[in-house]
Design a protein around this nucleic acid. Structure first.
Ligand SMILES: [Mn+2]
Ligand SMILES: [Mn+2]
Ligand SMILES: [Mn+2]
Ligand SMILES: [Mn+2]
Lengths: 218, 218
DNA sequence: TTAAAAATTTAGACGAATCTAAATAATTGT
DNA sequence: ACAATTATTTAGATTCGTCTAAATTTTTAA
């Protein structure tokens, strides 16, 4: 029942890659975790011995339901702490991730549930990502990347998928945040950049930025 | 600058034993940390190599000023989290220690200082122990063990030194807490137990309990 | 269809933190 | 003063998580 920091980080990373890419390769996971592929293989053996994932050498691996359950509790803790840091302590959304990366490993269930209650059972973290409840369930939001929003369609920003400090700072500068209303006025056929109307101002957003911003039509 | 959980736990334990007993022996430290004496010796070598303590085989060891500084930051974090758990999340004072034992190792300075500010710069933790400020300074309270309080002298409880869950539960049952007013009416010459008047009721306190309770005369 | 390239695993090593058992040093009591 | 006891250290092992370098398997593309 008590998993190591490493085990939790691996399970969470696998869960995220599995969600985003559908599949997870040894190299992709090594890249994501900033480790070497051989370390991945080592850990896969340990985790499969604990029945947290199924692993066939050279065939790949995928989380068991127990493995998913653990990944979700780590994600829950991560996002709850991010919310706490942002809402109660006044951290910026570009700073919370790094700190939550450590706090997420404190596994006392009573702590997490009391924190959740204290925060008022928030549904989304500061990046717009849904926070699993104590049973691992979370709200689903119908959203699409800003790159696919129809011209002149009003929408609000629901989340930012890439949470690199650089991107978040760039968005801060442009005063773009979760909940901000946005409308695409024009999309360039040449570089796919777009002209957006945000807070009554016209901004140019590169494709690289736009594809990390998800929106919900209103 | 980044110390391991183990290193921090050792430094904190040495600091506490040094405060309470004046000196620290290998065996005492092993007992305190629930490890084996040989593990202590191993760690003493590591910590002295890092100049956090001075160590001469068979002669003992004591913290350098750098070692004390680190111990104090760990104690600061521990007590701030205890305060948070108690005041904000509603944990009982007999539950906070165990959780804080983990939270104390999250070393992000900005986190700790923002938490401190959020809590209103508390001076004492739920057990009455002083919380070091960001420079490592803390309030000093003139207090004495309840076993030494003069008969009929009014006093209030400032702290409880032994924080075993058993003792704290026993105190909860008797409705004894930090800040509770107390007066000793009689002290038995036979078993050193004492009759105390607390919340307008007369209670018998064994010596074992009384010596863990510290009070300040009023 | 097969050779080159890419992905993955294995072999062997290391540092951290711990342990047991044995050796050694310090203390104590007669 | 010295033998017995106690405290401490050393020797040697183990587990965890990681690494590099080499081997192996899979994929790709000529
Ligand atoms: Mn993490
Ligand atoms: Mn987030
Ligand atoms: Mn601790
Ligand atoms: Mn305390």
């Amino acid at each position: 029942m008590p998993y190591t920091f490493s085990e939790e980080n691996y399970l969470k990373a696998i869960f995220h890659l599995q969600e985003k890419e559908g599949t997870v390769s040894t190299n992709a996971l090594a890249l994501h975790l900033s480790t070497r592929p051989s370390s991945i293989t080592d850990m896969m053996k340990k985790l499969s011995a604990k029945n947290l994932l199924v692993y066939k050498p050279y065939y790949g691996f995928s989380l068991t339901s127990e493995g998913k359950k653990i990944a979700l509790t780590v994600i829950r803790r991560h996002r709850l702490w991010e919310y706490f840091l942002s809402e109660k302590l006044g951290f910026g959304w570009d700073e919370v991730h790094q700190v939550a990366e450590e706090l997420e490993h404190i596994s006392n269930k009573k702590l997490v549930d009391k924190l959740d209650a204290y925060l008022g059972f928030p549904q989304f973290d500061p990046h717009g990502d849904p926070i699993p409840d104590s049973r691992g369930k979370f709200a689903h939001v119908e959203h699409l990347p800003l790159t696919e929003l129809a011209i002149n369609q009003q929408a609000i920003i629901t989340s930012v998928v890439n949470q690199s400090a650089e991107l978040l700072e760039a968005l801060n500068e442009k005063k773009i945040a979760i909940g901000t209303q946005v409308e695409v006025k024009k999309r360039s056929g040449f570089d796919l950049s777009l002209q957006a109307r945000i807070r009554n101002r016209n901004l140019t957003l590169t494709e690289q930025i736009a594809k990390n911003i998800y929106v919900k039509k209103i």
